[in-house]
Amino acid sequence: MKYLYVLLVLISSLAQAQVDTINTATLKLNLSAFKNSKRSYAVFFEDSTGKRLSSADIWDRTIRLSQTPSGQKIYEFDWKWFQKDSLLGHVTATGQLPSLAPLTHKADYAKRGKISTTFTGNNVAVSMPNRKTGQDTTFTVTLKQPAFEFPMDLEILPLLPIKKVGQQFAVAFYEPGTPAANYYRLTVTGKEDLPIGGNTNINCWLLNIDYGRPDAHATFWISDQSREVIKMREYFRGRYRYKVKLF
């Protein structure tokens, strides 16, 4: 009986350690939660003692579901990044449904310039014109895995098939303009009621992402009911960045 118990514990541990691979080809996301929506987030930094280091930027993020003239179902993503009274960045993107495979990505950042990206299968054509120097860098990337685009992490992570604490996922993301896509390890670390003011709580799953380096990681609070990110706390080089849903 003793050996049988040890064997059962070992089997249970191995089952819990299994990692579910998620990319645009696996079709494992919960698309019932991917709807027409607009969400706004306050984004700010704190040091390790909780002292606020910056005023809050505002992120307005919109998802619109539509279809092309040929009848292909697509999503349209729009992200406006406001800092004080200025538009610091504007990103638009499109992708296929139901896979969420990216089709296009265009971004205009006040400090980083423009980038235009077109996806054709696992091939990505990237154009990065520099407004200050007039130089135009164009190159092609071949992705080894069919990946989601990283700027949509707040919209994609809540769609993971989360059912219990201890689940682990490996999710493929690509940051437009970089040379490769990568898998990122995510673990469901808990479930708790998150206070949002006015004696109101939202029951949330806690999802931790490993960025592959010791000085960078983040936890997302994802509503169990609406499947949206309510809060994110990210550690990077000794300070914390927060993203908090306003409405």
Rank of each mutant, 00 (worst) to 15 (best):
S40E: 11
D108T: 00
T92I: 13
T140I: 11
D85I: 12
K144L: 09
Y3W: 08
T140F: 04
A180E: 14
G197C: 13
L87Q: 02
G238R: 09
W221K: 13
P195S: 14
D210P: 03
V124N: 00
L10K: 05
G95H: 06
T138G: 09
G198N: 11
S226E: 12
L160D: 04
A125T: 11
R233L: 11
K84G: 02
F44W: 14
W79G: 00
D210G: 10
F220W: 13
T137F: 10
A101I: 07
S32C: 08
T137S: 14
Y184E: 12
I222A: 03
S12L: 10
H217D: 13
K163L: 09
P158S: 08
I162H: 03
T120Q: 10
P98T: 11
M152H: 06
V91L: 06
S12D: 00
A17Y: 08
K114G: 01
P179H: 01
L97K: 03
S13M: 06
V126I: 09
G50I: 08
S40W: 07
A125L: 13
P98V: 12
Y5F: 15
E149H: 09
L154E: 02
V6M: 14
S13A: 13
S70E: 06
T137C: 08
Q72G: 05
V141I: 02
Q16W: 08
S37F: 01
A56P: 00
Q83N: 13
T133H: 06
N30L: 14
S99W: 01
L53Y: 08
D85Y: 04
K73H: 11
Q67C: 10
T62F: 07
T178C: 05
L154I: 05
M232K: 13
L100D: 01
R241W: 11
L157Y: 03
I74W: 10
N30D: 15
F220A: 00
A25R: 08
S127H: 10
P146F: 05
N199V: 10
L65A: 04
M232A: 15
K51M: 07
S66Q: 02
L206K: 15
L87I: 01
I230M: 14
